[in-house]
């Protein structure tokens, strides 16, 4: 059992998400930086998609009743065990009664803390991920609070081998953050100069950024005939342009459907880069082909699978 002493800014239980129910309106949710989730889990000896804690900008203080093996990945967050700094980039052992303190992120936004055995909250539709908007999954469907107690699952029957260090793919993105995009589904809704604006401008992450989406600021994008489309299905990574001509990149907790035109889609393996960007950071969209996207996905899977 882990007792939450200080919960941080927004700390939730997340795993690899809840796909399979989008036709019923259920968002996928899951870790915003899915590579960080996989690496932290593998370091801790877990299945890459096991349930972990996702911190946002700031960690927190956690007291471990029983001893545990833990690992951290994603944003650079200083970690200390009973006041002594630990190298959180490899697995570390927390003794029974030990207190783990995670500070403010030096770089990046979201870090995942994996504990061997995983965070053992009940599964909802096959996943332990918290979906805040409908209060589903995680601990009572909400962010952690001081005093919460988190059960740790039994150690996995098969220990997953730790990935080799260092993790080149884990590097936090530089500035501007480059996001590769695949054309479609509604590129034809935009005037040619509108597409040119989207691809040539440097966009700024606004303060309107959360697990549902990142709104970006920059020059207004011109449409061919308006922002509204007949509502259709959307995925995390879809770039929606609303009536004011500003793009929003949909993230893990996005709704399953939306009514704004979508010129292109950020490829899955690059979404973690945006998840690690904060307000004021610069973003650029770069076109890529299906072949490049598949190669990037293969590289990510090589880390995320055994």
């Amino acid at each position: 059992m882990i007792t939450v002493v200080k919960p941080g800014l927004l700390t939730t239980v997340q795993d690899a998400g809840r796909p399979g129910h989008r036709a019923s309106g259920m968002p996928v949710a899951g870790a915003m930086d899915r590579l960080a989730l996989a690496v932290a889990n593998r370091l801790a000896g877990n299945d890459p998609g096991a349930a972990a804690l996702e911190f946002t900008l700031m960690g927190g203080t956690f007291c471990f009743e029983e001893g545990a093996v833990a690992a951290l990945a994603g944003a650079e967050m200083p970690a200390a065990l009973d006041g002594v700094p630990v190298d959180s980039r490899s697995a570390f052992t927390v003794p029974a009664g030990g207190t783990l303190t995670l500070g403010v992120a030096r770089r990046g936004v979201r870090a995942c803390l994996a504990v061997q055995g995983g965070i053992d909250v009940p599964r909802v539709l096959g996943s332990r991920s918290t979906y805040l908007r409908a209060a589903i999954g995680g601990l009572e469907g909400r962010a952690l609070r001081a005093g919460d107690r988190l059960p740790i699952g039994p150690p996995p029957a098969v220990r997953f081998a730790a990935p080799p260090r260092p993790f080149p793919a884990m590097a936090l993105p530089g500035s501007p953050v480059e996001l590769r995009v695949i054309s479609g589904p509604q590129e034809d809704r935009f005037a040619p100069e509108g597409l040119e604006t989207l691809l040539s401008a440097t966009w700024k992450v606004t303060t309107q950024n959360d697990r549902m989406g990142y709104r970006l600021d920059g020059p207004a994008v011109r449409f061919r005939d308006g922002a509204d489309i007949v509502t259709d299905a959307v995925v995390p990574g879809a770039v929606q342009v609303s009536g004011d001509g500003k793009p929003m990149v949909l993230m893990a907790d996005c709704q399953t459907t939306g009514g704004y035109a979508k010129p292109f889609t950020v490829i899955g393996p690059d979404l973690r880069r945006l998840a690690q960007a904060r307000a004021g950071d610069e973003v650029r969209f770069v076109r890529c082909t299906q072949e490049e996207a598949v190669a990037a996905l293969e590289e990510e899977r090589a880390w995320a699978s055994t």
């Binding site: 989008r22 036709a23 007949v230 299905a233 995925v235 996905l297």
Partner: peptide, 17 residues
């Protein structure tokens, strides 16, 4: 993997690998 219907279209989700 998944089929997501809406008013006049479907989104078909697959694993490209």
């Amino acid at each position: 993997l998944e089929v997501v219907p809406s008013y006049r279209s479907l989104l078909v989700i697959h694993d490209p690998l």
